[in-house]
Design a protein around this nucleic acid. Sequence first.
DNA 1: TATTGTTATACTCTATAACTATA
DNA 2: TATAGTTATAGAGTATAACAATA
Lengths: 153, 153
Amino acid sequence: MISETIIFTAMAGELSSALDGRLGPLLGRAHDAHRRLSVAALEPLELSPKGYGALAIVAADGPLKQQRLAQRQGVDRTTAVAVVDELERLGAVKRQRHATDRRAYALEVTPRGRRLLAAAEQAVAEAEERFLAPLTPGERQTLRAALRRLQGS
Amino acid sequence: MISETIIFTAMAGELSSALDGRLGPLLGRAHDAHRRLSVAALEPLELSPKGYGALAIVAADGPLKQQRLAQRQGVDRTTAVAVVDELERLGAVKRQRHATDRRAYALEVTPRGRRLLAAAEQAVAEAEERFLAPLTPGERQTLRAALRRLQGS
DNA sequence: TATTGTTATACTCTATAACTATA
DNA sequence: TATAGTTATAGAGTATAACAATA
């Protein structure tokens, strides 16, 4: 169990203040901290962060080819193999055959996958709540908005 | 040379909208994009992002032991070896012997290191300007403030 | 015995290359 | 010839374990 106060580093007090204002370390530490909390939150569900993302995509966009999933997640198609393996092992998605192309799959979320996704959403939301605790609702919104605008959406 | 419009992914249009609102991917992509720009900006100076950070720490906090540097950068002491190697090769820091502990170094920035640091600051600032282009000055400030508050400073 | 710097090693993550079966 | 999925392999990045020198 990780203490609430040690989200960002093992001992934040040791870190140099020389990097405090720099955007790179700020983004990196924030991402790492969020990732650690997400990994811990998803672990009881035997779901990796990448598996969680892939499940959300299949649930939203499926049925779709495995290669399409990889593109939409921004990873290589070889990386998608292990991710879909993970989801299939959990019974969250099915590798059904594509209707007209026998080389491809038609990935589909299962009812169990939908339940798992809902549980994962909740677990991550709770972890995110702790992550965002230092910010007011307004600040959280502006943070999200800024990050979204940085990627042009 | 990387096109200005392809900062975030090779083809952002391919990415699923299912992950758009999620904080994990937002932070991850922002960090990756910033990192890519920083790497490109520092490359002409033969400086890695990690070397850049270490140089800034030595310049601000030095002289200090190699292990202290590692702690203040948040990396293992074995990782610091290669980073200091890089800075020493560039003539940016000197591995002087510690006055009272002959096991340890007293890392110090050189005049050349200070000039390199200044050049690196400027190069990264220019890259950051492109990174932050979609945001107004006010939004940039609130983004920085939010990220800083997330790490408790 | 503990600590500093170092090296060798292993582990994680991800991509590239090569294979197969289809198209 | 090209593409979908797979496997084997390699590379980057970083940590753990073990070592010599020193405390």
